[in-house]
């Protein structure tokens, strides 16, 4: 079994502030973390490895410091890690990012599953995973809540997807791409032995030239979408209607009536 996990290093959004003048994120001094949704993808890959044997490769496109995120995945137990880093990748939108990751996956070669988090907490698009599957021409199983079974003989996988109305059981052929939701597992902590291995590991960096990519399809040039402006929406004016009553039951009744009158429920 070979699982490839695509991860992203993101600013710890609990500590990010927005520059009100320029409308950009103030990233100075803000710690970077592995995108939390991606940690579930890493964990799921490690669980597959524990069950079926094989190996887990983690890749990330980002600036040189994104190597920290890859090392964290190695400390958790990933076997190999590759950083895709080149100034030419900068400014990529989700499509160009998916193309770059897809090119790296083609260069890696054989794999059974690709795992991604459902979305990154900074961009919140949830498009890169599906973009990779589309560009590779393989099936995508999004919002996976549980991997029920993998049959390597028949080359199939059966998963439960979290959909709005409930759960959906889907079977796909391998190889395929999964994006996972946070309820799928509980990511492990790295062990000290894992940390020591990761700290020493030399993680290879692949540049655009090494990956043989089409320069017109990467970075800002290869991005069909552009970010025109980032801004904080003005705070909404709200009105507070305080419900007072003699008992909680009475208060609940008044509230229910108001909500019904407003057609909220």
């Amino acid at each position: 079994m070979h699982a490839i996990v695509c991860i992203k290093q993101v600013p710890d959004t609990t500590e990010v502030k927005i520059d009100p003048e320029r409308g950009t994120l103030i990233r100075e001094g803000v710690p970077s973390i592995v995108n939390p949704f991606d940690t579930y993808a890493i964990e799921e890959a490690l669980l597959l490895k524990e069950k079926f044997g094989g190996k887990v490769t983690v890749i990330s496109m980002g600036p040189p410091q994104a190597v920290e995120a890859l090392k964290e995945a190695v400390a958790m137990g990933a076997d190999e890690a590759i950083l895709l880093s080149d100034r030419a990748f900068a400014g990529a939108d989700t499509w160009a990012t998916a193309y770059t990751l897809c090119s790296a996956i083609k260069k890696i070669g054989d794999f059974d599953v690709i795992l991604c988090g459902r979305q990154a907490i900074d961009g919140d698009t949830g498009q890169v995973g599906p973009g990779i599957a589309t560009q590779l021409g393989i099936n995508q199983l999004t919002y996976v809540f549980k991997i029920q079974d993998i049959d390597f003989e028949k080359r199939t996988i059966r998963v439960e997807r979290l959909v709005e109305e409930g759960r959906e059981v889907v079977t796909s052929t391998l190889p395929c791409l999964l994006t996972v939701v946070k309820d799928i597992n509980q990511p492990r902590y790295p062990t000290f032995m894992g940390i020591r291995r990761a700290a020493k590991m030399q993680i290879p960096t692949w540049t655009a030239a090494e990956m043989n990519v089409n320069p017109d399809l990467i970075g800002l040039t290869g991005s069909p979408t552009k970010v025109v402006r980032v801004f904080t929406p003005p705070a909404r004016e709200g009105e507070c209607d305080l419900v007072t009553a003699d008992s909680p039951e009475q208060a609940a009744e008044i509230l229910a009536e108001k909500l019904l009158a407003e057609k909220i429920i």
């Binding site: 090392k71 964290e72 790295p190 000290f192 020591r196």
Partner: peptide, 16 residues
């Protein structure tokens, strides 16, 4: 701190 020491701090803080 070395990479290893920084990673250990991060992991222990997270765990703690």
């Amino acid at each position: 701190l070395t990479d290893e020491q920084q990673m250990i701090r991060k992991m222990v803080r997270d765990f703690a």
